[in-house]
Design a protein around this nucleic acid. Structure first.
Lengths: 148, 148
DNA sequence: ACTGGCCTTGACGTCGGCGTCAACGTCTAC
DNA sequence: GTAGACGTTGACGCCGACGTCAAGGCCAGT
């Protein structure tokens, strides 16, 4: 299988595959004319990379998994290094989620506050004498009732 | 106030301030010798930028807030454009948090599965005859007890 | 006069993960 | 033999928010 075919099977581009090879992540054998050649095994490695990248792993973080597979283990996460990456990632995710939830709460609060302030101003504008005038200190005569 | 002083007061760098100016986000007046000059008002604008950036806003997203302040409004979020950014950001955050929680669950599940698989293998290794050997089919004589 | 500390503009470097040429080689089909 | 579809390496571009020089101007203190 050549690079174009592998890329198509995996739903990626030849550029990505060449990039992975430049990182030593997915090395390829070569035919006599210099073309890269891949086997089904390489497709497995590539899929492992893609799954983790879809999770948001950096390419370097997928390396232990790929090397684990290349070492002949049944799964990419059958090795201690892979498990360590999993654990680190879970911690990172928990920290990040917590942080984002904090930000979310703060932004939500700011939004609510700003909207209340705006509504107060709008209400003021609707009642030209100010918001809910309590008592009339002006001239005795004139409108004694509130506006509607 | 010159650029170094403003940077120090706000806990940032002159480089960042010049960058903001290049974006038109925080323009500065100039003295006769070409030095940038800032007032307390600029410090307010800068603090507004920093608060939002700490929230993870991109610089461009802080622009409505800064322009709102420069327009004389009491708060950076006293303008409709700012509120729109808030709302968009809340949506983004909710979506992102949800996505990360999904990833977190999947990675956590993979980790748990991989650890179970590993423990099973370790258990197998500890019991050379296989995991919990049901019946001895080997030679009749010899060690009849388990290892320790 | 000279040192040292501030300021100026300009321009390149960083990080990750590729996209997008350019210029060229290889193989198949007609 | 020639077009067209593949392949190759090399190199620059992109995104955002600056960091980090480099080369020089301005100003205060001694």
């Amino acid at each position: 299988m050549r690079i174009g075919e592998l890329a198509e099977k995996a739903g990626t581009t030849t550029r990505a595959l060449r990039y992975y090879e430049s990182l030593g992540l997915l090395p390829a054998r070569r035919t006599s004319n210099g073309y890269r050649t891949y086997g089904d095994e390489d497709l497995r490695l590539l899929r492992q990379i893609q799954v983790l990248r879809d999770f948001g792993f950096e390419l370097e973080e997928t390396r232990p998994f790929v090397e684990c597979l290349r070492a002949g283990h049944p799964e990419g996460d059958s090795c201690p290094d892979s498990l360590a990456v999993y654990r680190r990632k879970v911690e990172e995710l928990d920290a990040l989620i917590g942080q984002l939830q904090g930000v979310r709460a703060q932004v939500g609060a700011q939004l609510a506050r700003a909207e209340r302030a705006r509504d107060a101003l709008v209400a003021d504008a609707a009642v030209p004498g100010g918001p809910e005038p309590r008592c009339e200190l002006g001239t005795e005569r004139g409108s004694h009732g509130r506006t509607a």
